[in-house]
Design a protein around this nucleic acid. Sequence first.
DNA 1: GTAGTATTTAGTTAAATACTTAAATAAATT
DNA 2: AATTTATTTAAGTATTTAACTAAATACTAC
Lengths: 90, 90
Amino acid sequence: MNNAFKALSDPTRRKILDLLKNRDLTAGEISDHFNMTKPSISQHLKLLKNADLVQDEKKGQFVVYSLNTTVFQELISWALDFIDKGDGQK
Amino acid sequence: MNNAFKALSDPTRRKILDLLKNRDLTAGEISDHFNMTKPSISQHLKLLKNADLVQDEKKGQFVVYSLNTTVFQELISWALDFIDKGDGQK
DNA sequence: GTAGTATTTAGTTAAATACTTAAATAAATT
DNA sequence: AATTTATTTAAGTATTTAACTAAATACTAC
C-alpha cells in the first residue's frame, strides 16, 4: 500500500485518476488536460501503474489507461479501521 | 484533502496513526515507538495535525495526541467514488 | 529562581521528487 | 524505407522532504 499512498500524494496524479473515472483515456488524451509536458505525464502514469491504481493496454500506437479499483477498495478498509477502531478509547 | 494525502504518504506518519488507534498518547510515548529523535516525531505530529488527522491537547507538561476521524471519512467517500463511478464505462 | 522533564522551533544536510529537454522506441502512413 | 504520430526513457536541475543537532519554550518540583 505504500506505493499507493505515495502515488496519491500528488495532485496531478489524483487529477489523472479523476479523469479516468469518466472513461478510459490514452496517454495523449490525458496529457491534453495538463499544462505539462507529455514525458512528465508519462512519469506520473508509470507511478500510478506501479501503485496498481491504473492499468494500461497497448492499442496500436496508443496506450489506453484505465482505473484499477482494487487498491481503492483496500484503501477503504484501511480507513474504515480508523473509524471503527473496535472501542479502544470510548 | 491535499494535506491529508501528503501526510498519509509517509510510513512513519501512518504508523503513528496506527498507534493512536489503540489509545491516545503523549508526544513522548509516540516517539518511544520509533528509532528517531523526538524533534523528528514532533514534525510528523505537526504535519498530521495540520492535515486534521490528529488533534492535540495540552495536559500539564504533556501534549496528548488523539485521532480525528473526520478526514478518514472524507477519504472513504473519495475512494468510494472510484468504485461506484456511476457507470461511465460499462 | 534553579533544575529537571516534555515538547517544539530553527537551522542544516542528504535524499527524494517533480519537472524540463533531448533522444529512443514503436506503430501507421505515404 | 522514409516520415509522421504516440509514447517512453534518459539525463539534468530545482524544489521539497525527512532526518539530524542545538537552542528555545513551557510546565513541575524543589
